[in-house]
Design a protein around this nucleic acid. Sequence first.
DNA 1: GAGGCTAATGTCAGCCGCTGACAGTTGACA
DNA 2: TGTCAACTGTCAGCGGCTGACATTAGCCTC
Lengths: 220, 220
Amino acid sequence: MTVEQHTGAGPALRPGLREKKKQRTRDALLRVALELFTTKGYEETTVDEIADAVEVSQRTFFRYFAGKEAAVFAVQETVESHFSAALRARPAEENPFTAMRRAVAVSWETLEETLQPVVPLELYMRTYQVIESTPALLAVHLRRSAELEEETARLIAEREGLDADSDPRPRVAVAAFTGVMRVAGGLWGRGEDTGVDALRRLTEEHLDHLGPALAGDWRV
Amino acid sequence: MTVEQHTGAGPALRPGLREKKKQRTRDALLRVALELFTTKGYEETTVDEIADAVEVSQRTFFRYFAGKEAAVFAVQETVESHFSAALRARPAEENPFTAMRRAVAVSWETLEETLQPVVPLELYMRTYQVIESTPALLAVHLRRSAELEEETARLIAEREGLDADSDPRPRVAVAAFTGVMRVAGGLWGRGEDTGVDALRRLTEEHLDHLGPALAGDWRV
DNA sequence: GAGGCTAATGTCAGCCGCTGACAGTTGACA
DNA sequence: TGTCAACTGTCAGCGGCTGACATTAGCCTC
């Protein structure tokens, strides 16, 4: 059994019937899973239901996804590496915060076309809301975010010519930044407007407060 | 079935044999669970093993703890409310950051005596390391931290006479603060020195960088 | 294009976490 | 002492997940 776990970056050279079938099965499983999660809820959806809907055995589902959770976060992986790429592409002159802010902005602008081959943007957005509102998923999401944060800190350290292991500043800055991002994300998840624009606006708004909030005395 | 889920704040007026037995069972389950988790690992420990060691049925374990995880975080609950209390006790003149910093410092100083009745401090510290090094537990921990963060933001907002729902600044400040705390906690979890002092020192060190890190240009 | 190789899938048995239902036991209190 | 309620045990069962083994089906060679 070989089954590529990640979508992109496969060999893809002369797909062959076998590869194409695998891809189709994976896509079908993913789509059906997200569709069910977003309609009847994550906890309420059984792996058997997903497998049945795609007409494969439960065992096969687990060969494509490490677990029920994995299906939820499969798309998220794409989004995250999309952000990392955007950050790497930022010019060296920008300071850490500007670079992160713009990387977020850019990666959201181009999100739709990046995701299109995998799932429609709208389904992804709905999935994101399921994550924010399902305790078990939120927990995993936060841990994953922490990992992305670690990676981001290393990127920032590199940009600034610092050693990420000995110098705490990159981590601290990134922690503060993503902390704010998370607050915005949480608010968005609890709000009504589920569009990308609403999320973008909320984020900008909150990031604007980062500097002043740390200054200290708000009562002036 | 009534079984008080939390340790403190019970009636405790003239315990009675029944209450005492319940308390003993719960304590035994908790201690044995943490002991097993910290020695053979969380995933490797079965609920049956815990129950057997205490000589109760598996079903009884689940009547005292909502799940395997709940046992791990039972102590953490105490620690968290201890911190909240310390923050509430901070004088109003202190600015948000100072208040949070000192609340952390104070609550750690008095941690041992607070925990003593429940579990030895050393066992708690070991448990904390298990949390940091077990993905499933780390995930839950982060979600719980997010909830504490929410509560803390409300406290801060109240101190400053702001509305936590409309004004993003309390949340942002708290997010930045706890983000840094988490980084320090993570480093401590991966380090060798497992004492409280090491954790305290790391925290102070990282918090000192919060202001400067946000200033922007680190290359001067 | 028949046959062999191997990847993908299906089937089955079983572990573990967790829950509802029901029955048995044991403190509490009149 | 007897009644009631609280606590516990037993049992059956679901859902997530895994290892082992048999079956199917794409691929490649002669």
